[in-house]
């Protein structure tokens, strides 16, 4: 466990992970979409942090989007398949992300007419001093911002009490400008690309 790395993490059995059986047609649509969401997006070299407002976003291409609003399970499916940068294991299996730690709330509760929604994801690093917590959080934020329609605001934070420098990490993850700038960094880019390799 030196250098903030966890050599022997607890791994959940894939069959224990939360899933949902969906209508075959919807499921099909969704997996086909996931391919188009695979990182990096075509526009990546120009603007690593561009929001996808095009048909690649789930909601707009789903014909029955109104019937099926995006829920926490769907958010979970988007990020649980990402892999840990230091293990070839998914974030779901490592319980870095878990369904109960995902919330979707109205962004502006005092204005019911607004369709903005905030997705909050609390991540649980495998160990208290995990040196890669910021990178994992960054990857989760990027994955969601790339995949979700622009009306979603994404907040990724470290779950309370699970990391020694959580405040510092949280502040960085909340800073849109730092996130945008970080994605120009080739080292970080390759980290994130690796994390997204396991996403279909």
């Amino acid at each position: 466990m030196e250098d903030g790395k966890n050599a022997n993490p607890l791994i959940l059995n894939p069959s224990d992970l939360p899933t949902r059986r969906r209508r075959a047609s919807a499921r099909q649509d969704h997996s086909a979409l996931d391919v188009s969401l695979a990182y990096p997006a075509p526009s990546f070299s120009n603007d690593p942090f561009a929001r996808s407002s095009s048909p690649s976003s789930i909601e707009e291409s789903d014909s029955d989007a109104e019937d099926e609003p995006i829920d926490t399970q769907e958010i979970y499916d988007l990020i649980a398949t990402m892999s840990d940068p230091e293990h070839p294991i998914t974030l779901g299996s490592l319980a870095v992300v878990s369904l109960p730690d995902i919330a979707i709330t109205p962004t502006i509760p005092s204005r019911p007419a607004s369709n903005l929604q905030t997705v909050t994801v609390l991540i649980t690093p495998t160990i208290q001093h995990c040196s890669l917590a910021t990178v994992i959080g960054l990857g989760v934020r990027v994955r969601l911002e790339e995949s979700l329609p622009p009306r979603f605001r994404v907040d990724v934070r470290i779950k309370e009490g699970t990391h020694s420098t959580a405040d510092e990490v949280n502040k960085q993850l909340a800073d849109k400008e730092r996130v945008a700038a970080a994605l120009w960094n080739p080292t970080l880019q390759s980290f994130i690309k690796k994390m997204l390799e396991t996403c279909e």
Binding site: T105, I108, P109, S110, R111, R157, D167, N170, A174
Partner: peptide, 17 residues
Amino acid sequence: MAASPPRPPTTTNPSSP
């Protein structure tokens, strides 16, 4: 240095409407 400022739970804004 609060790392995660409270997001939405502000009270309603009487002047906005």
